[in-house]
Nucleic acid binder design. Structure first.
Lengths: 146, 146
DNA sequence: GTACATGCAAACGGTTTGCATATCT
DNA sequence: AGATATGCAAACCGTTTGCATGTAC
């Protein structure tokens, strides 16, 4: 059973209307493998239903976000979406060269978070945390070039 | 002597044309205290010269960035600019509530950087690093409310 | 049947560009 | 004088909104 079927059940239970468009958007995100930009979601969903409008995608994404179905991640100034999975909270490392995004366990940030809190009283919102840089592949390729 | 006078000398030396608009934009950033959004720079500079156009501000900021005079920082999906100061490299903590931005010494991130590099081969670009969250004041205020 | 979601087109805000004119060196 | 920066207006792109129509329940 595809993971998003459960979500659909839940939405139905909450009295949310399940339109084909909404199901498509959800599937697109689920199958896209996370970190999907609006345009990506739009194009992918549009393949199955060409009449789909971007406005609907935006409205649906906002709805899903409000319902906690998807999580919005700011990655390099661009907004991306992924299915919310409470069991697997994570942060992101984003490659500036290839645009790839990699998950990062919260464990790596705990110490930094504590330090900022103690030193400055600053409460980091680690939910929206991303580090940009070069992924292993791209770093390697760059090394070879130079 | 205002700090940006040195910069102006340098630009002149490099054969860059020193127009009033450019000087104004530079002063605006210097006096604005860092982390200035485009609009802020524009409004501030416009006070001294009302004919100033946003397009000029954009062109000037891009130029300054290319010349290394200013550094562009992505803060909460918004682009902000600050004078480049090689002697005082730093990162940023940005408050989601009040929009305030605070400097953070690189020392706090060294360990994290090393870990990412060793564990994943990921080379973080800490130059463009910001943590968002709540600053001490806003966190306090929020506590009191609830 | 009714409330609400959709498609479409138009509005929007921030950024960029083309062009004729003005300005710096 | 010559190269180039400016102001202005228009183009641009991603996102949002108003509205008449269609659809899930």
């Amino acid at each position: 059973m595809p993971s998003h079927t459960l979500v659909l059940e839940r939405l139905k239970g909450q009295g949310i209307r399940l339109t084909p468009q909404r199901i498509l958007v959800l599937s697109a995100i689920a199958e896209g493998g996370g970190h999907m930009g609006v345009e990506e979601v739009y194009l992918r969903a549009k393949e199955s239903y060409p009449y789909l409008d971007v406005a609907t995608v935006y409205r649906t994404l906002h709805l899903f976000k409000k319902l906690g179905v998807v999580t919005e991640v700011a990655i390099g100034g661009q907004l991306r979406f992924e299915l919310t999975d409470a069991d697997r909270k994570h942060h992101h490392m984003v490659c500036q060269a290839c645009g790839g995004a990699f998950d990062l366990s919260p464990a790596y940030l705990e110490e930094l978070g504590q330090t900022l809190k103690q030193q400055f009283g600053f409460e980091p919102d680690l939910d929206n945390f991303t580090v940009s840089g070069l992924c292993a592949n791209c770093a390697q390729r760059r090394m070879e070039k130079e």
